[in-house]
Simulated scan of single mutants.
Amino acid sequence: MENKHSSYEKKTGSSKPNLFNLSYPTQKKIIIVAFSFLPLLLLITFSYLPLYRMFYYSFHSWNGFSPNMTFVGMENYKTVFTRPEYFGVFKVSLYYFAATFVQMGLALYFATILSFKVKYKNFFKGIIFFPYLLNGVAIGFIFLFFFRPDGTLDSLLSFIGLGELTQLWLGNPNIINFSLAGTSVWRYMGFNFIIFLGAIQSISSEVYEASEIDGANKWHQFRYIILPSIKIIVGLNLILAVSGAISVFEIPYIMTGGSNGSATFVIQTVDTAFKFSKVGLASAMAVVLLGIVVIVTVIQRLIFSEKEA
């Protein structure tokens, strides 16, 4: 030990090692650990620990207030899959799932059009992206006025001579989910649009010029240049959109509170936990939703990876 300290003193001129006298790889490791400590602590505290507690609660019967919890095993999961009032509300997600393809189709269409030379294209870009900047609560109230009797939609239909089509857009169980899904399309299309637009604009203009020399029109450019170049972005947007359709919450909760057959699985989960004080059952529902989203994501990634291969 004495030999080591004496040799260290001869090399550095100091009797004690410090950070500046350490080797570069050691300093790099210390800095990485130091800067990663706080983010990892926050991630564990606000993500992994609540996730662990959610799994733990899902195997218990608990009202959220009592200090005592009763272990029930898989009973909560059995209830989720066998009681239609819990798992059956997933059928509402089908409306938003179908709206996802409409939303992505419109976003891709406008992104393609506005990637070419169009007058006032910056103005149209702002109009399309603006709804995504609005707060979800504000959008909910805007469309409450839009769909209410004698509201904006009814007035517009009457103005163009289609007054006989007016009805209770949020009061008729047969069409309420179409109205809410349309609201979702209006709000989130701008997000998909801006991602598609960025991906399309990253394609070199020389590729378009070469295709025009070969006689390609706009449709050929979209089919053989744009679409193959952004297929990874399309896959990413599809994963995000489908996951969002399964876990939709904000718009139907604000506009209808889940009434008239508009309750989604997430709304049912929140009501189960905080309205009916069944935190254990609600945790099991949340775990089921998480599992479904993970499965859908994995399947989509496998499909797109096979297509790329």
Rank of each mutant, 00 (worst) to 15 (best):
Gln103Val: 01
Phe304His: 08
Pro131Tyr: 12
Gly261Thr: 08
Met189Ile: 15
Pro25Trp: 00
Phe97Lys: 05
Ile44Pro: 08
Val293Leu: 11
Leu43Val: 08
Gln27Met: 12
Ile267Pro: 03
Met54Tyr: 02
Gly140Gln: 02
Ser93Val: 09
Pro25Asp: 00
Asn18Phe: 06
Ile32Gly: 06
Phe146Gln: 04
Gly151Val: 03
Ser36Met: 11
Gln300Gly: 02
Glu75Gln: 14
Ile213Met: 12
Asn172Phe: 01
Leu42Arg: 02
Leu43Ala: 13
Ser36Cys: 12
Ser262His: 05
Ala241Glu: 00
Phe265Asp: 06
Ala210Tyr: 02
Leu108His: 02
Gly105Glu: 05
Asn174Phe: 13
Trp186Ser: 03
Leu227Lys: 14
Arg83Tyr: 11
Ile233Asn: 04
Asn122Phe: 07
Phe159Asn: 12
Leu133Met: 13
Phe196Val: 02
Val118Asp: 06
Gly13Asn: 05
Ala245Gln: 00
Met255Phe: 00
Ile139Glu: 01
Gln167Ile: 02
Val33Trp: 15
Phe81Pro: 03
Ile254His: 06
Thr256Gln: 05
Val234Phe: 11
Pro50Lys: 02
Pro84His: 01
Asn260Pro: 00
Ser14Lys: 14
Pro84Val: 10
Tyr132Phe: 12
Gly215Met: 12
Val294Thr: 10
Tyr56Asn: 12
Gly161Ala: 07
Gly105Cys: 05
Leu19Arg: 09
Ser93Glu: 01
Val293Cys: 14
Pro131Glu: 08
Ser229Ala: 11
Ser262Lys: 06
Asn177Tyr: 07
Ile30Ala: 08
Phe196Ser: 03
Ser259Lys: 06
Ala284Gly: 08
Ala111Gln: 04
Tyr208Met: 02
Lys125Gln: 12
Leu106Cys: 10
Ser36Trp: 03
Leu106Val: 05
Ile251Cys: 03
Val266Cys: 00
Pro173Met: 07
Ile295Leu: 14
Val266His: 00
